[in-house]
Design a protein around this nucleic acid. Structure first.
Lengths: 393, 393
DNA sequence: TAAACTTAGTTCAGCCACTAGACAAACATT
DNA sequence: AATGTTTGTCTAGTGGCTGAACTAAGTTTA
């Protein structure tokens, strides 16, 4: 029985965390305002604030404007007290960012590759992390954690069980990085990390129920339900790419038939373009970027292909609406760049749905562009640091 | 900002609730054992227990067996301290049960009807509740609440927004019942109530992530995720019956095409039987019960129809596995009675899935037979009572 | 310009729930 | 009968929160 028992320490920790969160959210804010917003006693707030000040997690920024009496002392979240690294490992790239505790990107590094082994990718990853560390400004806490998003399934303990497009199986990347850099490391599925990133910094900040659809080579989905990431029993949730949308559809490598990602992914897009006779320039590969350019230039065939893919995306999105009744759906990853060519046909498909289910529903393309997953991963690391740090004292 | 602030009252309430839950789960149990299991101090447990005793929520049941020292005083959850009513309103029936605080059914009443208006159903409902109340034994708290499961969408405030098969729209059944019976009333979607019932009393007691598929005229799904009911932003989650599984499938009344329930519901079953030339006996209607009997008698056409429906059920279940990675899937409501004829083809379909996703996964048919929803609804009412009661003191 | 009023933040006594440990009660073992 | 164990109660002590008094520092009003 691992249930939470309550005592003064829990109370203290909870309230301290509440004060810090309030400061983060409303920076700058006075002690009196915190007391108002949280319902805590003024004295309690004062004592928590003085602790947070001594821990350098917040700062006093001089007097604010009076509202008819003594001028308040404004408090700021000290987002420069430490730094996190967020890494997005894609099928053919590694994107690493260094962020402060507020998720502002300080430095970014990206490497592209093709067909590297796990060990070779480890080396690339090290180079990126090392290079980010070199650029890290001095701060009270230094590097507080590393978060990594990977295109595959991750166990609840952080082991990478299967990343099919990278050919990885049972890799303990977390243990490796924790040993090497001696900070907490969190590994997450790329779609989960993206969902978290969008919830913290993107379009989903106000929603407690948001679905992030990561449309790249395949489709993965990150689920934020009741305000928290839902990972499923073993951490395998969100495999909506392998949701059957056509009973007798073509066979997928997952063993099922008619999987959504066979119709609505980047791969499906490129395949369809090839079938429809679009040929790349000499020496180039048929790519999403190229199709984007064609559509931009008004090419009717390309535009039509996007419309078709958008139609299939819309079918899956309708399913998602029926399943989750979310407040916010965000389409992210590679295909987010084609938002302009997909938006209309998704909307068209939505018209087939009951209007009641679309109340307050917002569908959009990622605002964080390619940073969703890396930002989410680094935010995970930062959150983890703040939670532990508050707990310890 | 409605965030929870912590103080002594919260601590007290949390620990008291923890003690009560421990007693419920491990009845009979001694004070010392509670302290061990929860990690609370012996003294704390003693004081909470004496409060619970004075509130008549628990009982002392004399000495237990010694384990080498003084014999412990065993404590029992007083499940007879009060009673709840759980009601399952179906498309053509009302099932009402009276349960004690532990979910044991004391009395049950059922009425069948056809095409009644909302007002007529209200009358039937009153008759059932009144009759259950007459049978209620005397107890400390009497009736503590009423829970109702309805086949439709319920807003987060408990208003019935739409129950298509009953032709209801925007009905405030909750307000009506609360005024009439003067106890807290909770209205839930029938699938949600069923999921909760299975989690509390059925096959899902040990799982924190369980999916209850209510297969009746249509299909509704109740989602227990991370240990709690997931309702979605407006309370409309779980409409998996309207998940598209065939892109260009037939039009559904929801506006979408190829919805799952067009292939795998009781309605689909009966339609398929009619198409395949199965005719009911004179004066009867073609029904699930009749097809069950035929299959029982070895009728190959009937068996084949079940196999076909099971196949479609399997497709949707595979989707559910990919989406939620649950620990437990329970098929309930009317079609659960045909489990024997469906099981094999569902299993067959599962073979198409990645084995990793099926780790620790258990799929079964409802153990509570037709009581899932009513039990869940009454459990909701009981829980609500216990939570409020502890809070108040 | 002084008095009156407001608002911000600190301090302190009192309260309450939890904890640790002493203690008594009741039983088992030797 | 003596010793050791386990259960449950009791008490003193701790720590965090609350309310209220108080200081500080502004604004408004006459």
């Amino acid at each position: 029985m691992k249930s939470q028992t309550f005592n003064q320490h829990v109370v203290k920790k909870g309230n301290k965390s509440l004060v810090l969160q309030t400061i983060q959210e409303y920076t700058p804010i006075s002690r009196a305002d915190i007391a108002n917003k949280t319902g805590l006693n003024k004295g309690t707030v004062s004592s928590q604030v003085s602790e947070l000040l001594s821990e350098d997690l917040i700062l006093e920024s001089g007097p604010g404007v009076s509202s008819g009496g003594r001028r308040p002392v404004m408090l700021l979240f000290n987002h420069l007290a430490g730094y996190s690294i967020g890494v997005d490992i894609g099928v053919n790239y590694i994107l690493g960012i260094l962020t402060d505790l507020q998720g502002n990107i300080t430095t970014e590094k990206i490497t592209h590759f093709n067909d590297l082994s796990y060990e070779e990718i480890q080396i690339q990853l090290n180079m990126i992390i090392d290079s980010l560390l070199l650029s890290m400004p001095p701060s009270s806490y230094g590097l507080v954690g590393i978060g990594v998003g990977v295109p595959g399934t991750v166990s609840t303990e952080g082991e990478i069980l299967l990343a099919p497009n990278l050919n990885w199986r049972n890799k303990d990347l977390r243990g490796y990085l924790e040993e090497k850099y001696d900070v907490p490391v969190l590994i997450e599925n790329e779609a989960n990390a993206g969902a978290y990133g969008e919830k913290k910094f993107g379009a989903g900040q106000s929603s407690d129920n948001l679905i992030y659809i990561s449309v790249g080579i395949g489709i993965g989905v990150g689920l934020i339900l009741n305000g928290e990431l839902y990972k499923g029993h073993n951490g395998f949730s969100g495999e909506l790419g392998h949701m059957t949308i056509e009973v007798d559809g073509p066979l997928c490598r997952c063993g099922n038939q008619g999987c959504w990602e066979l119709y609505a992914s980047e791969k499906a897009l490129v395949n369809s373009a090839a079938e429809k006779g679009i040929r790349p320039a000499e020496g180039q590969k048929l790519s999403l970027e190229m199709l984007n350019e064609l559509a931009e230039g008004g090419d009717p065939v390309a535009i039509n292909i996007f419309r078709e893919i958008g139609n299939y995306l819309g079918i899956g999105i309708n399913n998602i609406i029926n399943i989750f009744n979310p407040e916010q759906i965000i389409v992210g990853n590679r295909l987010a760049s084609s938002g302009n060519w997909l938006r209309e046909s998704i909307k068209e498909k939505q018209k087939q749905m009951l209007r009641t289910h679309q109340k307050d529903l917002n569908i959009c393309f990622s605002q964080l562009s390619r940073y969703s997953a890396a930002l989410g991963a680094s935010a995970y690391a930062s959150e983890n640091f703040l939670a532990i740090n508050i707990q310890d004292i």
